[in-house]
Design a protein around this nucleic acid. Sequence first.
DNA 1: GAGGAGATCGTCT
DNA 2: GACGATCTCCTCT
Length: 214
Amino acid sequence: MQTSAKLRESAILPREFYGRDPVPVARDLLGKLLIRRIGRKRLVGRIVECEAYLAADDPAAHAFSGRTPRNAVLFGPPGYAYVYFIYGNHYCLNVSCTKDGEAGGVLFRAMEPALGIEDMAKARGLELSELNSPSQLRLISSGPGRMSEALGITRERDNAKDLTSSRSDLYFSDDGYRPERIVATPRIGITKAVDKPLRFTIAGNPYVSGKRTT
DNA sequence: GAGGAGATCGTCT
DNA sequence: GACGATCTCCTCT
């Protein structure tokens, strides 16, 4: 089941949206649009997979062992981008979700390309004309590193960016789409707190990362 | 299709 | 100096 790529009028998500516990924020972010503006162009994807990271009681979270220069954004106000570099190769995008001073965030793991698909493919070193099947199209943005590369997200450019400002070139919006069914599973790629079901996906969506279940 | 290992570097101890 | 919220390529079946 694919979501419609037709974009209706949409509203930028306000800071209050992120000023809650990361779990409901992660669930509610599924189906929202992530928009990157590059000059007059827009790259748009629909979020289909994300993970919640808490601070207290969550050893897998970057914020767990306290504030450092790297993770400072997670301790700041909600609605800001936390971008980090991992494995010497990849950038991962999070948004800060802080409630009552408690650090937290949501990691974005996959999106369904909606607009500017050719530019996203190019950014990934792929040729759209050669991507003929859904399983090949997944290569554009199924995985946190792939998603960031498709949208040109880097730490230098986007870390600590306000994602709720209409002046920002990176933000989330709501076009009214609501997923039919959301699935919660354990998070991927971590070695601590591996059993917590804090990864959320849109059931059946082909752009979810990892093994295909459909 | 599944599984394993290398790449590669910022961050923290 | 070790490790990591990953991806890709290669080998084996």
